[in-house]
Amino acid sequence: MRGREVVIADAVRTPIGRGHPEKGYYRDRHASTLLAHTYTALLERSGLPSDRVGDVVAGCGSQFGEQGRNIARNAWLEGGHSLTVAGMTLDRQCGAGQEGVAVSAALIASGIQDITIGSGVEHMGHLSFQAIQETAQRWGDPYSAALRARYPLVSQGQSSELMAQHWGLSRTELDEFALRSHRRAEHATGAGWFANEVVPVTIEEEVVTRDQGIRPDTSMDKLAALRPAFDENGSTTAGNASQVSDGAAAVLLASREMAGEHGLAARARIVDHVAVGVDPVLMLSGPIDATRRLLQRQGLSAQDIDRYEVNEAFATVPLAWMRELGVEADRVNVAGGAIALGHPLGCTGARLFATLLNELERSDGQFGIVTMCCAGGLGTATLIERLP
Rank of each mutant, 00 (worst) to 15 (best):
Q243P: 15
C60R: 07
A224H: 11
A241P: 12
P318W: 01
N358P: 11
E232A: 14
A224Q: 08
A250N: 09
Q63V: 10
R92Q: 10
P49G: 07
L319S: 12
N233Q: 13
I288R: 05
D10E: 09
W139V: 08
A354D: 13
R293I: 06
S144D: 06
E309Q: 04
W139M: 10
T135K: 14
A275L: 05
E197I: 04
A335T: 13
A131I: 01
L90A: 09
D289S: 14
D306L: 06
N233W: 04
T218A: 08
S170D: 07
N311F: 02
A381C: 05
T291D: 13
S242Q: 10
T380Q: 14
E44V: 05
L264Q: 05
G17R: 00
I384D: 14
S82A: 15
V310M: 04
S62R: 13
Y26G: 14
K222N: 14
A109D: 10
Q63I: 06
T84E: 15
R292V: 03
I369S: 07
H273L: 11
E122L: 03
D175S: 13
Y26M: 05
S219F: 00
I8D: 10
V85R: 08
R29K: 12
A375T: 06
V332H: 00
E361S: 13
M1E: 09
T237L: 00
P15C: 05
Q366S: 15
L319M: 10
G190V: 02
E78G: 15
L341Y: 02
C60F: 01
I270T: 11
T348F: 03
E5M: 04
W193N: 08
G24S: 15
D304W: 01
A11P: 02
E324G: 14
V370S: 13
G47V: 04
E44C: 06
V251P: 10
A178D: 13
G17S: 01
C60T: 06
L35K: 12
R29M: 11
Y26H: 06
D175Q: 09
C347T: 04
L252I: 01
V244T: 08
A178V: 06
F129D: 14
G140C: 12
E78A: 15
V244K: 05
T38V: 07
V271Q: 07
L162I: 09
A266E: 13
Q67F: 02
V276S: 03
R362V: 03
A105V: 04
A75N: 03
L77Y: 02
A58F: 01
D289N: 11
S128V: 03
